[in-house]
């Protein structure tokens, strides 16, 4: 998935070159589990809580957090996935991937939506995601969980749950997956 998205985004055909590993799979698993505990604590349980993973990188994290929530509390929270391509202000710069579908099979009215993404950077994805969420329904609250917060925000967003705060330079790249988090660069 990442290869295809990168192949159709400037610089076209760039490849991710990892410089060092920030977290391994166990580290990611511990962060996911901590975020799950924080979600339960903040919402005083999981009543009326739903998770929505942002395509494409946020989806596996949403599923992992849901699995951890189920493990901890015995409650299965609904999990959806959302593609925000049509809501982006930089729509020219990002490909629309046919396989990155939107599937939210539950009502969003009066629930607490936890948006889940892999990397929080400028915040533009989250702005688009808020527009998309409100076209699907009218939630009571929206919270944000990200695996990595790498800084360089261009919009006034602050995540509610963070797996790892990772100071970066602008030209660096972060690859966050369930099997680890790596810091590197995209080479042409």
């Amino acid at each position: 998935m990442a290869e295809r998205e990168r192949g159709r985004t400037p610089p076209f055909g760039g490849e991710f070159l990892a410089h060092h590993q920030v977290l391994d799979a166990d580290g990611v698993g511990r962060s996911v589990r901590r975020m799950a505990h924080e979600i339960i604590e903040r919402n005083e349980g999981l009543d009326q809580v739903v998770l929505i993973g942002l395509q494409t990188g946020g989806v596996p994290f949403a599923e992992a957090i849901a699995a951890a929530l189920s493990d901890i509390s015995g409650t299965d929270v609904p999990v959806g996935k959302l593609d925000v391509a049509f809501y982006r202000d930089d729509i020219d710069l990002r490909p629309v991937l046919p396989e990155a579908d939107t599937a939210v099979a539950f009502d969003l009215d009066r629930v607490t939506v936890v948006l889940v993404d892999d990397v929080l950077f400028t915040g533009r994805t989250i702005r688009a995601a808020l527009d998309a969420v409100f076209s699907l329904g009218r939630p009571r609250a929206v919270q944000l969980a990200v695996m990595v917060d790498r800084g360089h925000r261009e919009l006034p967003f602050r995540p509610d749950y963070v797996g790892k705060n990772l100071p970066t330079r602008r030209n660096e790249a972060v690859d966050a997956r369930l099997d680890g988090v790596e810091l590197g660069e995209v080479t042409k």
């Binding site: 998935m1 400037p10 990397v119 994805t125 972060v174 690859d175 997956r177």
Partner: peptide, 15 residues
């Protein structure tokens, strides 16, 4: 072309 600046958002690599 390489003349236009690489948009910041694309530095974020998705998995």
């Amino acid at each position: 072309g390489g003349d236009e600046p690489v948009p910041a958002e694309t530095n974020e690599v998705h998995s």
